[in-house]
Amino acid sequence: MPGKFIDDLGLEAPIFQAPMAGVSTPAMAAAVSNAGGLGGLGLGASTPDAALQAIQETRALTSRPFNVNVFCHASAVRDSIRERQWIKRTRPLFEAFDATPPESLREIYTPFQTNDAMLGVLLETRPAVVSFHFGLPRPDQIEALRLAGCRLIATATSLAEARRIADGGLDAIIAQGWAAGGHRGMFDPAAPDERRSTQTLVRQFVSEVPLPIIAAGGLMDGADIQRAIDGGAVAAQLGTAFLRCPESLADEAYRARVVSGVETVMVRSISGRPARCLINRYTAWAEGVAISEIPAYPCAYDLGKALNAAAKAKGETGFGAQWAGSGAARAVDLPAGELLKLLEAQRQSTCRHP
């Protein structure tokens, strides 16, 4: 039974808070879990020590299940010529803020597949749910986490990816639609993107893959959640909806743009992988940049973070990775636990009165 996945976790609401790296916090994850949903920690950009601390802080705030997310991207294929040209191309942006770009780019994130220290943290702490973005871990890592009692889920943007997740022996699949904020979970960012809506992916996965499906992408209120469930999902994952919560690490400029009605755009230039961002000065600058000119993820992100820091030091907030889904303007300013309860009340109301 697909619903057994939610029942086994003991959730009171079929709502997951997306584990947004750089935005989610132990306080947010704990508040969502305490309110009956599944909170999430985005630890793909964290060191093992930082990940351990975040998990321990969350455990101190809740005894309920929560999700820990890690990145399973392929190691960067370095191209020194492309990287030097990229640094040169962005130099005028840095100089506008009296700064200089880095002399070289770093591969700032270690893939989970090659990070057994992070695996050790997860085996030590045994979070109820471990989720994977950008791909799948090694089979032995999957087996170790399963033996530790963790439920395992991964993001898919296509039926082929969903089938690979099922074949890998995981417990559930996140169907990430085109409207989702932040990074696309594509296993291969160089492959064609089908750009399917959340609703289309859910229907397709439910009919073709024998695993519970969690809908993600463009979902902002209880009615959106219930529509996803009516389409066959067992739960919905929301990230942008939580950006304005006081527990969020989003800065004031980011929050202001979330509610300003600014549109979003899918860009690769900020990090090196496709990601949906609020339109800002950086995305506008990158409009004419060919994909072939952008360094590999996460090396491009090294430069992007440096540029944002230089801009913010001069009071310019338009160069950040302001990830957001297409429904960003509908986000509300509520504590995470209160928001979770509101979303569930809206969902139940919609369910009672179709």
Rank of each mutant, 00 (worst) to 15 (best):
P2Q: 00
G10V: 01
M20Q: 05
M20H: 06
G22A: 04
S24T: 12
S24G: 14
P26F: 09
A31W: 02
A35F: 01
G39V: 02
G39K: 00
S46I: 00
S46T: 02
D49K: 07
A50F: 00
A54N: 02
T58C: 10
R59V: 03
A60K: 12
A60H: 06
S63A: 15
N67P: 03
F71D: 01
H73T: 01
R78P: 00
S80E: 15
R82Y: 03
Q85V: 02
W86Y: 13
I87S: 04
P92L: 08
F94L: 10
E95I: 01
F97G: 01
D98Q: 11
L105Q: 05
R106M: 06
E107K: 00
P111K: 04
Q113P: 06
D116E: 11
A117P: 00
L123H: 02
P127V: 06
A128H: 15
V129H: 07
V129L: 09
S131N: 09
H133T: 12
F134T: 01
G135P: 02
L136E: 07
R138S: 04
P139T: 08
D140H: 07
R146H: 12
L152A: 01
A154Q: 06
A154M: 07
T155W: 02
A156D: 04
S158K: 02
A162P: 00
R163C: 01
R164D: 11
A166I: 00
A166C: 08
L170R: 01
I173M: 09
I174N: 08
Q176H: 04
W178Y: 13
W178K: 09
W178V: 10
A179I: 03
H183Y: 13
M186G: 11
D188M: 08
P189F: 13
A190R: 14
R195D: 11
V206Y: 08
P212T: 09
P212M: 08
I213L: 11
A216F: 07
A216C: 14
G217R: 02
G218N: 10
D221L: 06
G222I: 03
D224L: 09
R227F: 08
I229F: 09
G231A: 15
V234H: 04
V234W: 02
A235Y: 03
A236T: 06
A236K: 02
A236I: 05
Q237E: 14
Q237H: 07
T240C: 07
L249T: 11
R255F: 11
R257V: 02
R257K: 13
V259E: 14
S260C: 05
S260M: 08
T264K: 07
M266R: 15
S271H: 06
R273N: 09
A275R: 04
R276Q: 12
L278H: 10
L278M: 15
I279W: 11
R281M: 12
R281E: 15
R281S: 15
V289H: 10
V289E: 15
I291E: 15
S292M: 08
Y297F: 15
C299W: 03
D302I: 00
G304I: 06
A306S: 12
L307I: 07
N308F: 11
N308D: 15
K312M: 12
A313H: 06
E316I: 08
E316W: 10
A328V: 05
A328R: 04
A329N: 10
R330M: 13
A336K: 02
L339W: 03
K341C: 06
E344N: 15
Q346F: 05
R347E: 07
T350V: 10
C351S: 14
R352C: 11
H353F: 12
